[in-house]
């Protein structure tokens, strides 16, 4: 999947979370320091959320909520909070990096023992997930840092033209 390939160089950019950062998740300090076509990045170039005055979220966080709720909620519960059979991603992303998340989503995961049978499917071929994986990650990163609350974000930035173009070519 070309989307995944495009994401892999981010691995090289990954810098371990340094001490003294006010807020950090599995990818380090989530503070947005740059943006391109309405998509924000942290100091390491990793995709991140941006919350402006009045709780307005960036477009990717918003569309991430929408696509998360269609493709991930069935197991990981509403708002990333987990269910009886899949873990809370709000917790998981406190330690999982962007690359960890992408690798798991694309390749799946198996944890089958006497005590439990946790299996996540490999979604690498699923356009409904992979065409939106950055947005889903950004949304969950915001949830994990308690920057985005439960439920549908009430206000968001307008849909960037670049997003629509990428979506169209990816979903074809």
């Amino acid at each position: 999947m070309n989307l995944l390939l495009r994401a892999v160089p981010a691995l090289a950019l990954l810098v371990c979370c340094t001490a003294g950062v006010a807020r950090a998740d599995g990818s380090g300090d989530p503070a947005a320091v740059s943006s391109e076509d309405g998509k924000y990045a942290d100091k390491d170039g990793t995709a991140t959320y941006k919350i402006s005055e009045g709780g307005k979220v960036d477009f990717y966080s918003y569309i991430g909520f929408v696509r998360y709720s269609a493709n991930c909620l069935q197991c990981h519960g509403p708002d990333g909070l987990g269910s009886t059979y899949a873990p809370s991603l709000v917790n998981s992303l406190k330690t999982l990096s962007y690359v960890d998340v992408l690798t798991t989503v694309a390749g799946g995961k198996k944890d089958v023992s006497e005590a439990q049978t946790l299996v996540m499917p490999a979604l690498g071929e699923n356009k409904n997930v992979m065409c939106y994986i950055d947005a889903i990650y950004i949304y969950l990163r915001g949830r994990s840092n308690d920057a985005i609350g439960r439920g549908r974000p009430q206000a968001h930035e307008p849909r960037p033209a670049a997003f629509s173009e990428a979506e169209d070519s990816c979903m074809k």
């Binding site: 519960g77 708002d79 269910s83 009886t84 059979y85 809370s88 609350g149 439960r150 439920g151």
Partner: peptide, 26 residues
């Protein structure tokens, strides 16, 4: 043995969209 579709709400509970902007309202 709780679970199934009902188990979706187990960890989270349901939110109340009428509770107002930004409210947790779980």
């Amino acid at each position: 043995g709780v679970g199934g579709w009902a188990g979706i709400g187990l960890a989270a509970g349901l939110t109340d969209p009428h509770a107002g902007l930004g409210a947790v309202g779980g």
